[in-house]
Design a binder for these strands. Structure first.
Lengths: 120, 120
DNA sequence: TCGATGTATCGATAATCGTCGATATATCGA
DNA sequence: TCGATATATCGACGATTATCGATACATCGA
């Protein structure tokens, strides 16, 4: 075996091998970020959790003002963010709009974040 | 909030049963939101994914400028956000800092977002 | 039709965020 | 010690965000 000569490089004179995209490339990252941003708020996390825990998985927005301690426009804003991220859906029933979590979307996010599954 | 009186209530004159906190109460929501916020950025998602895909699960920051197309201060900023969220750790090796994903933390986030597990 | 109630939108404000250039700090090789 | 390289911090800028009061829209009961 030759002793060295591959170049006069020191073995410590580089940091690491080149990086490449992993499971998540630029396009996927751009698609996922808005969903995570929609969840990255304490109020919206609680909304999602409350909806999941509601008797039939649905509730109207008017029930949320009390528990969350926020104004109606603010809650409407948060529901809109969640809706636009595809994480909840609203269905009008008379005066009220019943919201439910789109569990498939939520699962997708959870799945994408699971490093174990990403590595298997 | 109920629209009707508890007494002379019409069967259709209320929207739904009262809401309570689900799996995620206010404290937990406040604790989780920063972790999700750290992940709610395309650049940081790619950093995490690249680290997970790196040969030994680690890489120095200097390898990221090229693939991400961002300046060194910007990448350093994103790594700091991920560090402060507990999602990555950095270990100094000479001139370089080798970063790795704290997979346990990432699993925690994924777990908390999985509605199936939350309901079982 | 009218008044009451739930929801959405508008406009404003204070706070946060992503990005960069300039600069400081840390480590190595010479 | 000095110069080179990797990383962190600082200061600034434009963009986005969370929140609210005011207001518009939608639906119901009377």
């Amino acid at each position: 075996m030759y002793a060295g000569r591959v170049k006069t490089i020191q073995i410590d004179d580089f940091c690491c091998t080149p990086l490449h995209d992993g499971e998540i490339d630029a396009d996927r990252a751009n698609a996922m970020a808005p969903m995570l941003a929609a969840l990255a708020d304490p109020v919206r996390l609680r909304i999602v959790s409350m909806l999941l825990a509601a008797p039939e998985g649905t509730s109207c927005g008017c029930e949320m003002e009390g528990p969350l301690g926020l104004s109606q426009p603010t809650i409407s804003h948060h529901l809109k963010v969640l809706r636009e991220a595809g994480l909840v859906e609203g269905e009008r029933r008379g005066r009220w709009v019943h919201y439910r979590v789109v569990t498939e979307r939520l699962e997708d996010v959870a799945e994408a974040l699971s490093p174990v599954r990403a590595l298997v």
